[in-house]
C-alpha cells in the first residue's frame, strides 16, 4: 500500500489556477493584438515583442538572482504585464525606451514589492505613466493608423493626435465641440480602431470581444466594468446635456482613448483592485469619476491610467471599509 496523505479538508480542488487565469487574460488580448497589427503593422509587432520579452526577462532575472525564489516566469503574469505595457505605447516607440519601461513595470512596480500578488499598483500602468512623464514627446507622437504593412511606421512616421488630444487642444483654442467633431474619424472607425492612439487601446470592439471571453471564463466579474463605464457615461452625459457646445457626446468618451482597455484589463486586475463586490462598485465608480475629471478639466487629454492608479491606492481602504454582506448580518423579517 502507498503512504497515505493527511491534510485538512477540503480534499478536492476546483480546476482553476493562477496560470490558467493569466493565460486566459493573454487569450483575451489576442483580438486587440490582431487589430493593432492590422492598423500599425510591423511597428506594433516590434513593440509587442520587445515589451513582452523584456518584461519576462526582468521577471526571470530578478526572481533568480535577487529574490532567489522558485522561477515564476511560467505563471504568465509577466507576459500579461508585457503585452499590456505594449498596448499602452504608440507603435513608433523606440525599443530602448520600451526596455526602460519594462524595467520600471517589472522591477519597480512588481518585483520590488515581492512579486506576483503583492504589488499595490498595476505594473503596466506604472510603466505607462513613467514613460509618459519621462518621455512625453515619444509617448504622444501617435502614428496614424495605416493598413497592414502599407507604410513602415518605424521610419516613415506620419503622426497625428488622438481624438481626445485633438478635442482638448481645439477646445483650448475656443472652438466648439460640433466644429471639432467634423475632423474626428467618426464613431464606427473609433469603435473598430481606426484612430490615433496607443497600439492596444484603439479598437474598443476588439477589447470588448476579449472582455466577453474573460466574462464567460469567469476571469473577471461584470461589476467593475459596469460601474466604471456607467459612471463615465452618466457623468459625461450630464455635462453633455448641460452644454453640448463645450462637452462632447458621452458615446465619444466610451470609444476613444484608453477607456475600454483600462476598464476591462486594468480596472479588473485582481491584484490591485478590491476583493468584494461592494468594493468593486466603489472602485469602478471612483475610477469613472476621476477619468472624466482628468479628461475634461485636467492637464492631460487622457485620464484612465491616472484614475486607475489613484483608485489602486485606495484599494486597501476600500477592502477595509466595504465588507461583503455577512450571513445573518441583519435578521430577515420574512
Amino acid at each position: 500500500m502507498n503512504t497515505l496523505t493527511i491534510s485538512g479538508s477540503p480534499h478536492v480542488h476546483g480546476d482553476d489556477s493562477v496560470k490558467k487565469i493569466m493565460y486566459g487574460v493573454v487569450y483575451a488580448l489576442i483580438p486587440a493584438i490582431l487589430v493593432s497589427v492590422y492598423f500599425f503593422g510591423l511597428g506594433a509587432v516590434r513593440v509587442l515583442l520587445v515589451s513582452s520579452i523584456a518584461c519576462m526577462f526582468f521577471e526571470w532575472i530578478i526572481q533568480k538572482y535577487i529574490i532567489k525564489g522558485p522561477p515564476t516566469i511560467n505563471d504568465g503574469s509577466a507576459l500579461v504585464a508585457g503585452v499590456l505595457l505594449a498596448f499602452n505605447v504608440p507603435a513608433n516607440m523606440p525599443s530602448w525606451i520600451l526596455i526602460i519601461g519594462a524595467f520600471v513595470t517589472i522591477a519597480i512596480a512588481k518585483m520590488s514589492f515581492g512579486g506576483l500578488g503583492k504589488n499595490p499598483f498595476n505594473p503596466a500602468l506604472v510603466g505607462r505613466i513613467f514613460l509618459l512623464i519621462s518621455f512625453p514627446v515619444q509617448m504622444t507622437s501617435w502614428p496614424k493608423p495605416s493598413a497592414l504593412f502599407a507604410g513602415d511606421a518605424l521610419t516613415d512616421t506620419v503622426t497625428g493626435p488622438t481624438p481626445l488630444g485633438l478635442l482638448k487642444e481645439e477646445l483650448g483654442k475656443g472652438r466648439t465641440v460640433p466644429e471639432i467633431m467634423q475632423e474626428m474619424p467618426g464613431y464606427v472607425n473609433e469603435l473598430l480602431g481606426n484612430q490615433g492612439g496607443c497600439i492596444g487601446e484603439v479598437s474598443a470592439a476588439a477589447l470588448i470581444l476579449g472582455a466577453l471571453y474573460m466574462l464567460i471564463r469567469r476571469i473577471i466579474t461584470w461589476h467593475t466594468p459596469v460601474a466604471y463605464l456607467g459612471t463615465v457615461f452618466v457623468f459625461t452625459g450630464i455635462l453633455y446635456f448641460m452644454d453640448p457646445l463645450q462637452y462632447v457626446n458621452p458615446l465619444f468618451h466610451l470609444v476613444t482613448g484608453g477607456l475600454m482597455l483600462g476598464v476591462f484589463f486594468m480596472a479588473t486586475d485582481m491584484v490591485t483592485t478590491p476583493v468584494s463586490r461592494r468594493g468593486m462598485w466603489i472602485f469602478g465608480a471612483g475610477a469613472g469619476i476621476l477619468t472624466v475629471i482628468i479628461r475634461i478639466w485636467g492637464g492631460y487629454p487622457e485620464g484612465v491610467a491616472f484614475a486607475i492608479l489613484i483608485m489602486n491606492a485606495f484599494t486597501p481602504l476600500i477592502n477595509r471599509g466595504f465588507k461583503p454582506k455577512r450571513f445573518g448580518e441583519k435578521v430577515a423579517d420574512a
Partner: peptide
C-alpha cells in the same frame, strides 16, 4: 519512521489539531 505524508501549511499548531 514516517508512516503518513502531511500535506498542508507548515505550522505545528495546525498539524497538531489535525492529526
Amino acid at each position: 519512521p514516517q508512516k503518513i505524508v502531511y500535506d498542508g501549511p507548515a505550522t505545528c499548531a495546525f498539524a497538531h489539531n489535525l492529526f
